[in-house]
Design a protein around this nucleic acid. Structure first.
Lengths: 158, 158
DNA sequence: TCTGAAAGCGCCTGCAT
DNA sequence: ATGCAGGCGCTTTCAGA
């Protein structure tokens, strides 16, 4: 079930749908030079195979009053399975954490955090991250500028 | 032009569309207890105001054969405007870099990199990042596990 | 601002190629 | 695997409250 070979047209479809996920099937078909029915079949296959995992509206955090982003590197105080489990559950509950990865290297985790302002961030740090989750050390870096915003996964071969 | 006040229904719509960006207007309307026409007008307003910046298909990198993710912290060798400009242009050209932020702290930039495997990463590092863009130092951390995958921006008040 | 109705359009199935 | 055709559902606009 991993990768039932994607041809050039499939990659074109993925590129288009990563760019504009809500265009009509007719529009999409025209862009990739396929009839609407052929296009639809291919898209549905990509969905069924899990290559397309879903669709999402892209929301501008600034317009929601979320003006501050940070990357927080986290070290846990303990590394037994239950401590790791607990930390993961907390992270998944905290709305401010939009993404979290376990990493190789000095620190255990990298958290991407989106908040209103520095005061909001401070409260998040003191009330949640440092307080509840078995965290030993944190190192916060704030986003000064987004040089390249996420626009989808790279697509091999084009 | 910043924030023409979003009511509870708008936030519900945003939550729904961040979760499932391609549901039909009829479906969406039912979920938030609105008539289809009222629902459509609100969504269109969110789009016009830029709160919804677009829609994107979510593609599973594993199914594309992209099995390795890394976060790379980068320090430039020079910090004059032209060096910064050049680096930004390179980063925007490299497909492997899916996101890049200028940060406070020790390092200048944080790059999120998606590649096929370690060999692909190595080639990216040697051929591009260390070679072309005025980079002084890099520090790579690889993703061992995604504890919380990005699922949209947090929505205040619910 | 909402609801409801009417008209147009796109989706999507089935069948032929 | 693609293309074509028809029924159906949805989107979208317009009145009216």
């Amino acid at each position: 079930m991993p990768n039932p070979t994607l041809d050039r047209t499939d990659l074109l479809l993925l590129a288009e749908l990563q760019r504009a996920g809500r265009q009509t099937n007719a529009e999409l078909a025209e862009r990739v030079n396929l009839s609407p029915s052929a296009c639809l079949r291919r898209v549905q296959r990509l969905e069924r195979d899990g290559v397309i995992a879903g669709y999402r509206a892209v929301v501008d955090p600034e317009r929601l009053g979320l003006g501050l982003q940070a990357f927080v590197r986290v070290q846990l105080s303990r590394h037994d399975p239950s401590a790791i489990e607990v930390f993961g559950e907390f992270v998944n509950q905290w709305d401010e954490v939009v993404a979290c990865h376990a990493l190789t290297g000095d620190m255990d985790y990298l958290l991407q955090v989106v908040v209103r302002d520095l005061e909001h961030f401070s409260r998040f740090l003191l009330d949640h991250l440092l307080n509840q989750a078995g965290v030993d050390d944190v190192n916060s870096s704030f986003v000064l500028r987004t040089v390249k915003a996420f626009r989808g996964m790279p697509l091999p071969g084009r």
